[in-house]
């Protein structure tokens, strides 16, 4: 029986997991598929096997510190439970990874969206991470659920950014608010909230310009945007989502830390997971900052978005073991 079988009792769950599996299929034929081969080809659980496991996890961009800690837990568990076969190790790995992510708390990937109030969601991240596309996808989700969604063009800097979001709003049939290019983003947010109030919006999705976390003036600008939103709308932003590209290395952790200093990052969106990168840095982000992953992006199309489910994520990574 085992942990893994318990996870997938319901058919529904299995169906969703299939989507993860497809989107991440290339992932599996990359490094992690070697996990199956590695475990199958090892006769005993040895130091060498643990070294090889470290290698696999590091190649997933999980990050040296988290990997060393994780493999340390594996070693302890193996000792305590007296596991001798590498094949049994697979269940331990999944279990430990689950524990690492969840940390005995209830982790939800739902957004803090409440009826009868104006919900503000702020999207932040470095250049090229996929904020605008993600907003399009999330807008689509909530429009389909019957909410009135306003998309706000907070990137007033990058060429074509406003129009890019506008086209998305037309695709999903959401409302759209913008000011002219070059406007102060804080003033855009200010006016957008007024507009949303006057037009009975349920959710505002605010796009911001991509920015590198080491640019002090840009981080200050973001802090200001955050303050303005908070001032104009009680409890806002209700969610601040950090959009992280799955190909990002250790810098992802630095992004999370520093963006979290000027805003209250409530969740991560891990994009471009349909590539060969595993996006393991989000595990390090959860481990060190306790910021959960809310969504994963699996492509450029409008419904290439999934709520994050750690079990499905692990399944997508490991499913060729089974």
């Amino acid at each position: 029986m085992g942990f893994f079988d318990n996870l997938f009792k319901s058919k529904e769950k299995r169906k969703n997991a299939q989507k993860y599996k497809l989107g991440m299929s290339k992932t599996r034929s990359g490094v992690f598929s070697n996990l199956k081969i590695l475990l199958e080809s090892s006769k005993v659980i040895s130091d060498e096997l643990f070294d090889d496991l470290e290698e696999l996890f590091i190649m997933a961009d999980i990050g040296v510190d988290t990997v060393i800690k994780f493999v340390g837990h594996l070693r302890d568990t193996v000792e305590v439970k007296e596991i001798t076969s590498p094949f049994d190790l697979k269940e331990i790995i999944i279990e430990e990874m689950f524990k690492l992510y969840v940390k005995d708390e209830i982790v939800s990937s739902n957004l803090d969206i409440v009826k009868d109030r104006l919900n503000v969601i702020l999207f932040v991240g470095v250049n090229g991470a996929g904020k605008t596309t993600t907003i399009g996808k999330i807008a689509n989700e909530y429009i389909n659920k019957g909410y009135k969604v306003l998309m706000v063009a907070g990137d007033t800097f990058r060429a074509g950014a406003i129009n890019q979001l506008k086209i998305w709003s037309e695709r999903v049939e959401a409302d759209f608010y913008s000011k002219e290019a070059g406007s102060d983003p804080s003033s855009v947010m200010f006016d957008a909230i007024k507009y949303a109030d006057n037009n009975n919006m349920d959710i505002i999705l605010c796009d911001t310009a991509g920015r590198l976390q080491n640019k002090k003036n840009l981080m200050n600008e973001l802090g200001k945007i955050n303050k303005v939103i908070a001032r104009e709308c009680v409890g806002a932003p209700h969610e601040t989502l950090l959009v992280v590209d799955a190909t990002t290395g250790q810098n992802g952790l630095s992004q999370a830390k520093i963006f979290n200093e000027v805003t209250n990052i409530s969740g991560v969106v891990l994009t471009k997971l349909d590539g060969t990168a595993k996006g393991g840095i989000v595990l390090a982000i959860k481990d060190e900052l306790n910021i959960p992953i809310k969504y994963i992006g699996l492509g450029e199309k409008i419904d290439d978005l999934e709520h994050f489910d750690v079990e499905e994520y692990i399944y997508g990574m490991f499913s060729d073991i089974f």
């Binding site: 990359g30 590091i58 190649m59 997933a60 961009d61 470095v126 090229g128 590209d245 799955a246 190909t247 990002t248 290395g249 250790q250 810098n251 992802g252 590539g275 060969t276 990168a277 595993k278 840095i281």
Partner: peptide, 12 residues
């Protein structure tokens, strides 16, 4: 190539 690309850079 994005300078902050991690392990996947090799594959790309």
């Amino acid at each position: 190539l994005d300078a902050m690309t991690g392990q996947d850079a090799v594959n790309v």
